[in-house]
Amino acid sequence: MTRSKRIAGTIAHRSAILVYIVVALFPLYWLLKVSVTPNDLLYSEGVRLWPSHASVDHYLFVLKHSDFPRFFQNSVIVSGSTAFIVTILASCAGYALSRFAFRGKYWIVILMLLTQMFPLVMLIAPIFKMLSPLGLTNSLTGLVIVYVAFNVPFATFLMQSFFDGIPKDLEEAAMIDGATRFRAFSQIILPLTLPGIAATLGFVFTAAWSELLFALMLISSSGVSTFPVGLLSFVSKFSVDFGQMMAAGVLALIPACLFFLFIQRYLVQGLTAGAVKG
C-alpha cells in the first residue's frame, strides 16, 4: 500500500469515528444546552449552538418547586433495591449453573432463555390483576418485585459467565482448607467476582431506572412515581417550559451515565490474573 493511500485511509477512519461520536453526543448536548438557556433567549436564539448567556435557573426551579426530588428518591429506592436483590439472587443461581452438573439444569437454562423471548407487554394485565388484591399496586415494593423477576434471568447468565472464568481449584482448595461449600462461595469466589458483581449491579440498576411501561401501569399516585413516570407527567403538566423539562431530563441522565462509566471500568479489570499459572 502506498503511503498516501494509507494516510487517506487513516483520515477516513478517524473522520468516520468522529461522525459517530458527534451523532451519539449531539442529542445529549442539545438537552444540556436548552436546560441552561434562560427562557427569554429560548425562542429568540433558536438553533444557536450555545446561548449568549447560560443560567442554572431551570435546575433550581426543578429541584425546589417540583416533585422532582421525590421522583428521584423513589427511583433510587426502586432501582437500588432491585439491583441489590437481583445481584444476590443471580449470584446464587449463576453459581449453581456454573459449578454443579445436575438434572434439571438444562430446563432451568431453557426456562430463563424463554423468559427473554416472550413479550413483557403480555404480562401487564395479569400482573396488575395479581398484585392488586395483595395491595402491591401503587407501591414501590410491588414494582421492585416485578423488576427483580424480569431482570434475574439475564443477570444469572451474566454472573454465570463470570463464575465460569474463575478456576474451580480455588473453592476446592478452600473446601480442603476447612470451608463448607457456601463459605468457599462467599469468602473466596464472590470477592473474586467483584467486577462481575459491579457490572451486574450497574446493568440492573440502569434497566430498572429506565423501565416505563410497568411503572405507568402499576403506579397511579405521584407520591410513589418513579422517575420515568414522574418525568412524563411533569412533561404533560409543564409542557410549555422546555428549559425545566430538559433540566429534569439531564438530572435523570446523570445516574444512568455514572453507572455506565462504572461498568466500563470494572469490566476491564480482572482480579484472577495471579491465581492461575502466571
Binding site: 429506565s210 416505563l212 422517575f227 420515568p228 412524563l232 435523570a252 441522565l253 444512568a256 455506565f260
Partner: peptide, 10 residues
C-alpha cells in the same frame, strides 16, 4: 456507546 446508557423514555 453512551446512548445505550440513556434510559429509553429519556
Amino acid at each position: 456507546f453512551l446512548p445505550w446508557a440513556v434510559p429509553s423514555f429519556l
